[in-house]
């Protein structure tokens, strides 16, 4: 009986650890008002690299970046776009200095990103999943 309890407690603890780990993950979000329900990593990647200016439903898409060097940004670009900070800087050097486009708008911090995206059905961003609330929805959990 005691053994059983111990195992149950250990499992509960393990579950908690896993849940916590999951909550430290980046999620890609759009406004709760947006008709978009899910996106593939490839679709998100194209929007953030400026290769596509629209969502798959042909509505305009405005990507929002977080601060360079922030863990959430590094995780997003590693998992979704498969580029590290210097690869990304090299990529944008090509685009900017040929006038072909400009990098996503920068908004600092999960809270500010959530607030901006909640108010803009055309915006798309990424945050730590712990900052999720009812005003936005996750469309990709990489």
């Amino acid at each position: 009986m005691l053994k059983c309890n111990l195992i149950r407690r250990a499992l509960a603890l393990l579950a908690l650890v896993f849940v916590n780990a999951a909550y430290a993950d980046v999620v890609v979000i759009v406004s709760a008002k947006s008709p978009i329900t899910s996106l593939s990593a490839d679709q998100v990647s194209k929007i953030f690299l400026g290769k596509s200016s629209t969502f798959p439903n042909h509505k305009p898409a405005y990507p929002i970046d977080q601060q360079l060097g922030s863990p959430v940004r590094d995780e997003f670009y590693e998992k979704v776009v498969h580029k590290d900070a210097s690869q990304l800087a090299a990529y944008w050097a090509k685009i900017i200095f040929t006038g072909e486009g400009r990098p996503p708008k920068l908004i600092v911090g999960d809270k500010a990103v959530v607030k901006t995206i909640a108010d803009n059905p055309d915006a798309i961003g990424y945050i730590d999943s712990s900052a999720l609330n009812h005003s936005v929805k996750a469309v990709l959990v990489p």
Partner: peptide, 30 residues
């Protein structure tokens, strides 16, 4: 500054700003 924008040198503000706002002139160098 064009590259600085990408590198997050902008001030830490938590105000909500329109997602389509763009700076009129961006300078850069390579």
């Amino acid at each position: 500054v064009a590259m600085a924008d990408q590198n997050g040198v902008s001030p830490d503000n938590t105000e909500v700003s329109a997602v389509t706002d763009q700076t009129m002139f961006e300078f850069g160098s390579y």
